[in-house]
């Protein structure tokens, strides 16, 4: 197990370096310069470039960047004069993380409930109802859903704030808008898994032994149906990262997503690099954690060359 984790970690670092390198060179192929402005002449642009070290050959800039990166220095933004990339990410990431985590947790819990209910009440009104909700959640784009929520709940009914991020009540609408997709995905998945598990022989055996229905569901059915859910949690978390971008914009939430897009549009190289690396690190980490969790919860997966043999 230790060896496995160690080698996965090595791959992580390598992937990270590859991403850093590709992003750096691709980013510099973007047309335009951060100092393009209607009013700046070529000579003035050259002066600005010099001020920020952009006049050096790309390779030199690349190794300088890597050196700084190792020292934990992500550089200084061009669009926000004098502000460090670390502080730009630091100021915004907390909000994005809370919003993303809240949506993931709320969405997963609700999705599981819907999925279980649908499976247990298979082919009833409850089943169809849950699945209609799930299909709607999957098919309505989150910006449409967010806009509708904002208008109806915020403006017309005035139950919740229209926008901004100044307390828990401000986070409810954006969370719902983001979680809809999670609820739908998890519910559909859970329903199918439960139906599958409930048809297995060991469930029939357990029933025959006279086990209480609630215990049967929790101990025997649910536990086995949960395993595949872990696999989709990783990709779901990643899709939330992109989802927050739109939702943050609509609800005027000071998160990282919008800043990322803006930095690309303004050729703010240090911020593009910083945010890309941050997102990729997060993504790689999720994949890593999911891999580890997988080994931990599924007894059928065993690694060769270490640990005890599975017996079940």
């Amino acid at each position: 197990m230790k060896k496995y984790i160690f080698s996965r970690f090595g791959y992580m670092l390598f992937t990270f370096l590859l991403i850093a390198t590709f992003t750096f060179f691709l980013m510099h192929t973007l047309p335009g310069s951060p100092f393009n402005d209607e009013r700046l002449s070529a000579a003035q642009k050259a002066m600005m470039a010099k001020r920020y070290g952009l006049d050096e050959p790309l390779a030199v800039q690349y190794f300088k960047y890597l050196g700084n990166l190792l020292a934990g220095d992500l550089g200084v933004s061009f669009q926000f004069d004098g502000r460090s990339v670390t502080s730009i990410i630091g100021e915004r990431i907390g909000v994005s993380a809370v919003l993303g985590a809240q949506s993931l947790i709320a969405g997963t819990v609700l999705g599981l409930l819907l999925g279980i209910v649908a499976a247990l009440k298979h082919n009833t009104f409850l089943d169809y109802g849950s699945m209609i909700i799930a299909v709607l959640g999957l098919s309505i784009p989150n910006f449409v859903f967010a806009g509708l929520l904002q208008y109806w709940v915020g403006v017309r009914l005035q139950w919740l704030p229209v926008a901004f991020w100044e307390g828990f009540e401000y986070s409810i609408l954006p969370t719902i808008a983001l979680a809809a997709f999670v609820v739908a995905t998890i519910a559909r998945f859970m329903r199918n898994e439960m139906l599958d598990v409930l048809g297995h022989d060991y469930i029939v055996t357990a029933r025959a032994k006279g086990i209480r229905e609630s215990l049967l569901i929790i101990r025997h059915a649910l536990r086995n149906a949960m395993i595949p859910i872990v696999t989709i949690l990783g990709p779901l978390a990643v899709s939330l990262m992109t989802g927050t971008l739109v939702v943050e914009q609509i609800f005027s939430i000071p998160g990282l997503g919008e800043q990322f897009v803006k930095s690309i549009l303004t050729n703010d190289y240090p911020v593009i690099m910083g945010v890309t690396l941050f997102y990729s690190f997060f993504f790689i980490l999720i994949v890593f954690v999911v891999d580890i969790l997988y080994v931990l919860i599924d007894p059928r997966i065993r690694l060769t060359g270490g640990g005890s043999r599975a017996n079940g």
């Binding site: 806009g147 403006v155 926008a163 901004f164 005027s252």
Partner: peptide, 17 residues
């Protein structure tokens, strides 16, 4: 307050924010 979307801005105006 930072508002990044025109529709949101109009909604905030409507609610008096």
């Amino acid at each position: 307050r930072v508002t990044k979307d025109t529709a949101t801005e109009v909604n905030l105006y409507e609610t008096g924010d």
